[in-house]
Design a protein around this nucleic acid. Sequence first.
DNA 1: CAGCGGATTTACTACGTGGTAATCAGCGCA
DNA 2: TGCGCTGATTACCACGTAGTAAATCCGCTG
Lengths: 362, 362
Amino acid sequence: MAVTMREVAAIARVSPKTVSNVVNDHPNVHPDTRARVQKAIAELGYRPNHSARGLRSGRTGVIGLAVPELRQAYFAELADAVIAAAAKRGLSVIVGQLGGDREHEIELLTHGLPQTDGLLFSPERLGTEDRDLLAYVDFPMVMLGEWIFGGPTDHVTMHNISAARAAVEHLISLGRRRIAVIGAHPEDETRVMGPSNLRIQGYREALAAAGIEHDPRLERVVAPWHPEDGADAARQLIESGLEFDAIFTLTDSLGLGALRALGEAGRVVPDDVAVIGFDNITISHLTVPSLSSIDPGRAEIAETAVSMLVERIEWGAGSSRPARLHKAAFDVIVRESSGGTASGPAKASSRQSGATPQRLNG
Amino acid sequence: MAVTMREVAAIARVSPKTVSNVVNDHPNVHPDTRARVQKAIAELGYRPNHSARGLRSGRTGVIGLAVPELRQAYFAELADAVIAAAAKRGLSVIVGQLGGDREHEIELLTHGLPQTDGLLFSPERLGTEDRDLLAYVDFPMVMLGEWIFGGPTDHVTMHNISAARAAVEHLISLGRRRIAVIGAHPEDETRVMGPSNLRIQGYREALAAAGIEHDPRLERVVAPWHPEDGADAARQLIESGLEFDAIFTLTDSLGLGALRALGEAGRVVPDDVAVIGFDNITISHLTVPSLSSIDPGRAEIAETAVSMLVERIEWGAGSSRPARLHKAAFDVIVRESSGGTASGPAKASSRQSGATPQRLNG
DNA sequence: CAGCGGATTTACTACGTGGTAATCAGCGCA
DNA sequence: TGCGCTGATTACCACGTAGTAAATCCGCTG
């Protein structure tokens, strides 16, 4: 058995409760006493028992992060940022993979992750139709990455529509007119607020604003969003014989696949086809050619989400504070795939759109 | 407060202990009683309190996974596999990032991760000189990825030497003779058993066996192993004016960077320079050109490591069973960067080297 | 020197669960 | 009918911690 407070107390000639007070940095502890206790702690190598602490205080010091799968670079980098942000606050992170399994996602929403004080949830299959489930959520939760429920839960997300629009406007600014988009999702009313639909909307807005005719055949449906799916979609696009001089892939993963498929078909990027992705995953600046992208502000998203979750946890379970929505600022990163230069940050624009938290009606 | 056993017991008209027996599938519970209790559990939505269970039983049902950083594709994919393997056994995983910080790694080795029953540890800075620290490890642990301590702790690792040798032999079989290697680590006696030194050793063995002169200038030192480091190293190699017709990068990440740098310099892969990496991360088959690699058997590593850890946990803290070493089987994956074809699995060889667990002297 | 008030420390207890050992019910057999 | 035995259920308690409230200490005032 590990060392307990009782044993430390015996050595330091104080009560167990005083040891507890020292460990938890309580105000009214005499400096001498504190020193004596800390010495005893060091001698015995005492470490607090988290289970007991959790039982007593109702807090575990662990938060959950649920994503579809870590092997997708976007989620890995998100998890990286979340774990770092949580560590700053002394929290550990249990990472759960739902694998795009709807049942799992619903189960998670209903019960949370065991052993955790709260949940950061980046769902893949839940949609507006599941909004009712939120009524049963009785633990602190912050939704990540997409504003699927339109409230009444905290969301930390990105400017999907305007960032997508900015990406397409960038392509238009290069003189491209036949702009394909890869990554639309199959008709799915439940995911109206999902990132796919939102980014597609941004795409259409950009076309409309520029007076470019919208050709539905250039909207390529593909799910999931793995690189090979992007490659497949791009191949089909090429084989379709449709004319196009640019591709907006809804994620960088898809973009990497598209670059591959274009290369196979002998289409030169960006001369024949300009490409821009979304997510700005690490590898994108080192592909051949490097991939233009939208940087969605991952660090900001992680940081904000963790701090919102910590607030919810501290407010306690009973509190019904209004739901909040935070959209991180984004950047358009122009690289070789859309005419940028090889290296350098090469941001086409500084941070766009307010990072100001917006309030929703509870 | 959440529902407790007491409340369930009251509804089902049994004692709390009987509820516990039902929850834990104890043998001697009457079917009728069991049914009644289960009904009550369902009605109330009872969920066991993991903190209390942990306090009482000494188990948390959570294991720790410590890696340098998740943003590196190799570790992300490893974590993906570990989480999946743990989930099969009903375990959650707390993922910790040590960021290549030696102090953190030592601290972790000394105390483990709070809230966990055991630790899967993939260190980056620890080496043979830290072997003494193992004496103080009083929790179940399995080392991942490299056999740095040469015992006396369980290790699940890969055939670094022979796999690296196989990679270089593949390059030699293409007729290449001036083979550079990227990713050697700075002189570091403490990491004799680290993957860098081992893979370099495999490289040298392959050259020697083929009677190829070993040119130390072709061994390029670089750390850490991010893609941009690979690109930098390859650029320096090119600028050095040294002649070379192949590169073995010690990881795929480095390889991606090298492909980039070669492309920038106008060297055609594989015609001018053949390239092979190590790790077989997902993106490697979709780069331009696709990157040959060594598949180290990630799923096998994760699966084996988790099951070894579970065994250690079940044996209990006191037990001093002998340390075990498991090396996963590997594959050489030939792709375009070393003359393979675009698609298809294209394995040059079937699984190599025995996956047979080897015993060490405790 | 008694009395006061804030600082410091303590005794007691509950958090929810599961191990131990005791109790109780039911059944077969003499 | 009574006894013993097995199966089923229970009472009791401890796991390690921290909240509560009460006790104790100390310096200072009147």
